[in-house]
């Protein structure tokens, strides 16, 4: 009897909690639509976006290899999924992850720009979210600005903080929390130059930055929790924290490099690299 009642209450409570802020109908995840920004400024933003993506494509080559390329694809998919999860920030207002800081920390800044850009492109093409003529504006605001600010601040903080997982979490949080209002500020700037409507820029700036400070807290929580989770399970897969795992890699590469350089009898190079389980595994393990 008791055991029956407890789950029932939980369920009812959960339902009641969910109802107020979810009609369940539309996941509104609205980026800058068509018609907010005039054509010349949209084109200019598009040119900046193209240039940014081109630089990112070049730089990403250094960040991506056979193992990190799939991780980057999965990170983009995760950012897409997380962007669907609008969370309430104030009365009648919600926010969602932008994801630039998160992607940059996980897979590198250049690849991070590409991750968010791919998400924005697919949202515009598949889900009619974010105007196609505003794609440049959206890439500038949500991919370029968030990665530049977020990842820049993250690396800066890690330089002064002690090398520990807690520092990585703290730096992720701070970087993400700052990146969102910066994105809002840049939108305001774009609006000031090319807005199609005649609204006081001061009012837009105050409202945009104000609400995005709150959204930034949500962004920061998601970013810090995600980065910390991956760091806990696979520290070697967090690009932004690769300094943390370096001592460990040095020790390992040290033993491995020692083998070919030292004794010729261990020059089972390819086999040693491939590390087939039937191969000379015991000798490697004993080192």
């Amino acid at each position: 009897m008791w055991q029956l009642r407890v789950p029932c209450n939980c369920h009812a409570y959960a339902l009641r909690l969910d109802l107020p802020h979810s009609t369940g109908r539309t996941v509104r995840d609205v980026h800058v639509p068509d018609g907010f920004i005039n054509a010349p400024v949209s084109v200019a933003a598009g040119a900046v976006a193209v240039a940014g993506v081109a630089v990112a494509l070049r730089g990403a080559r250094r960040e991506l290899d056979d193992r990190t390329a799939p991780l980057a694809g999965l990170t983009a998919a995760f950012v897409f999924a997380a962007q669907m999860l609008n969370f309430p920030v104030a009365s009648g207002t919600s926010g969602h992850l932008l994801g630039g800081t998160l992607a940059a920390i996980l897979v590198g800044p250049y690849t991070g720009v590409l991750c968010v850009s791919v998400v924005l492109l697919m949202q515009g093409l598949l889900f009619a979210d974010g105007g196609l003529t505003a794609l440049g504006v959206n890439i500038v605001n949500m991919a370029l600005v968030t990665v530049l600010v977020g990842y820049g601040l993250f690396r800066l903080l890690l330089r002064v903080l002690p090398k520990s997982p807690a520092s990585v979490a703290g730096a992720s949080f701070t970087a993400a929390v700052v990146s969102v209002p910066c994105s809002a500020a840049v939108f305001t700037l774009v609006y000031a130059v090319g807005g199609t409507t005649d609204v006081s820029v001061g009012k837009v700036a105050a409202a945009m930055i104000g609400v995005h400070v709150l959204i930034g807290i949500g962004e920061a929580l998601i970013t810090a929790v995600t980065v910390s989770s991956v760091l806990a399970v696979r520290p070697d897969l967090v690009y932004g924290a690769r300094d943390l795992v370096k001592p460990l890699e040095l020790r390992r590469t040290g033993t491995r490099d020692g083998a070919p350089g030292g004794t010729p009898d261990r020059a089972s190079g390819p086999a040693g690299d491939a590390r087939t389980p039937e191969g000379p595994e015991p000798s490697g393990a004993s080192a």
């Binding site: 969910d18 979810s22 369940g24 539309t26 969602h96």
Partner: peptide
Amino acid sequence: YYASSSPDGL
């Protein structure tokens, strides 16, 4: 499904 359906910040 449980995400907020309120308009987002922008």
